[in-house]
Amino acid sequence: MQLTLFLIFAVLAVAGAINLLIQRHPIYSALSLVAVMFALAVEYLILGAEFIAFIQVIVYAGAIMVLFVFVIMVLNAGEVAPAPKSRVAAWIGLPVLALFAILVIGQVYGAFGATQLGLGEYLVQTGPVGNSLFHDFLLPFEVTSVLFLVGVLGAVVLAARQDKAPKPAIAQAEAEEPKAMAAGQR
């Protein structure tokens, strides 16, 4: 039963990932990733990772991916025409990738082939997670606040509209390289 569940959602996840690659429009790719995440959430549940399964849905699929979709919509990003140049990358990249995949799968299979994971053998509930977070993992938990501050600052620095554009910079630069600076005008 567990194997059937695993296989169903594994197939779903892989299908979602492949769809992500096939789709041309970024919005479909983003939605495919959401599908992958939902499938993975189920896999997490099968593995007894209750807490992770829930935040996978709520935070990852719910919040982060919504941000993606939102940005795609705001930027009105459309399809990008395939250029012949990137095919060159495919010739080099695909064999390398295939080799890598075979290697990794082979390794993990060789190392862990015998281990069986049973349903419900080990359940991680929210309580122990919280306990662990505030004892053993207190430091990383606190430090992630710095990470978020950096994130906030980054968004402010890069994306916020400025009160006033640096006038002299643009004036001088325009004389030298007009087209590169055109975007700075707004």
């Binding site: 194997l3 996840a13 990932a17 990794v104 993990v108 299979y109 281990t115 069986q116 994971l117």
Partner: peptide, 13 residues
């Protein structure tokens, strides 16, 4: 029962 390697293979894929 699902072998651990199945999960790892999915993860690698």
């Amino acid at each position: 029962m699902v072998p651990l390697s199945y999960y790892l293979a999915l993860s690698a894929i």
